[in-house]
Design a protein around this nucleic acid. Structure first.
Length: 279
DNA sequence: GCTGTATGCAGAT
DNA sequence: TCTGCCTACAGCG
């Protein structure tokens, strides 16, 4: 489930598991073999994330491993070192006691420090980084005729938000997805940003996306908690055709800029409403 | 066994 | 707006 929270969580887990340890690197699949040989046998000094990008640093080499999971990549950390290789493992990282297997990444490469800087420079503020400046995103949003739903997915506007957080934050603020960026009031954007900080921080802690407020949880609403389980509790993401948790209207879906977009036409009508849960 | 789909993004058209 | 790509898995015949 690679949105920004996944990468930040992986950075924490990699640091905790491998930080300060001598590591071995291989590429069972072969496509990272040359690079793996260069970093093999080094102490892992740290891991960090920015948006959906993961960086791993090793002692004695300036270059940094850059990983982007894309749509379906995964990095699985597990105890033990004698695992059989299952599937296409691009990079296997091991300490004396632990193994991390990277499968299906969009990108796994070594970058020089200037290349890392260039990559960071093209990212918008990341709600999971304490130094992030939401006004930088605002400057891109408030003059734009592009729908807010599209802007939220643009990593140069906000880094780390993916299709789930986009749908959920728009729902939680009652914003119609097709609203032009320039029609989003500044206070609304700030509330959405603060909410993203909260939601994504919870995402890192739980390693899953939960966006449903306590008063709308299945137990509180008398719903079956197993009715639509996507590995997290959400309002609209992939719930098209199902009743909205808040108002009961049917959740809609359309393709926007090549991605599925989900929303509730009633809760996100753009008209002031008295229902619970919206600001 | 095949097809479709996926929480992403770059490059071509 | 589209195509391609990284890979695994569910659903279907």
């Amino acid at each position: 489930m690679p949105e920004g929270h996944t990468l930040h969580r992986l950075a924490l887990d990699l640091s905790a598991t491998f930080g300060g340890h001598l590591t071995r690197s291989t590429s069972p699949q072969g496509r990272f073999a040359v690079e793996a040989a260069r970093i093999d046998g080094r102490v892992l000094t740290g891991a960090d994330a920015a948006g959906k990008h993961l960086f791993v640093e090793l002692d004695g080499i300036a270059d940094v491993v850059h990983v982007h999971l894309g749509l379906y990549g995964s990095l699985q950390i597990s105890g033990g070192t004698d695992h059989e290789v299952v599937g296409q493992v691009r990079w296997r990282l091991q300490s004396s006691t632990e193994t991390a297997d990277l499968r299906g990444p969009n990108t796994c490469e070594l970058l020089t420090p200037p290349e890392v800087d260039a990559l960071m420079a093209r990212l918008g503020p990341d709600p999971l980084r304490p130094d992030a400046d939401p006004d930088r995103a605002w400057r891109r949003i408030h003059g734009s005729t592009v729908p807010i739903a599209t802007l939220l997915m643009d990593q140069a506007v906000v880094a780390g938000v993916g299709n789930v957080y986009r749908a959920e934050v728009l729902f939680r603020h009652g914003v119609p997805p097709m609203t032009a960026g320039r029609r989003i009031p500044r206070v609304r954007w700030r509330a959405m940003w603060d909410d993203l900080v909260t939601l994504m921080t919870v995402g890192v802690e739980r390693n899953r996306i939960d966006t449903v407020r306590p008063e709308h949880e299945p137990e509180a609403m008398g719903r079956d908690p197993r009715a639509d389980d996507h590995g997290g509790e959400v309002y609209v993401y992939r719930r098209d055709g199902m009743p909205c948790h808040v108002c009961g209207d049917v959740v809609r879906k359309r393709v926007l800029a090549g991605r599925n977009l989900f929303w509730c036409p009633t809760c996100q009508s753009g008209r002031p409403r008295t229902g619970v849960g919206h600001q």
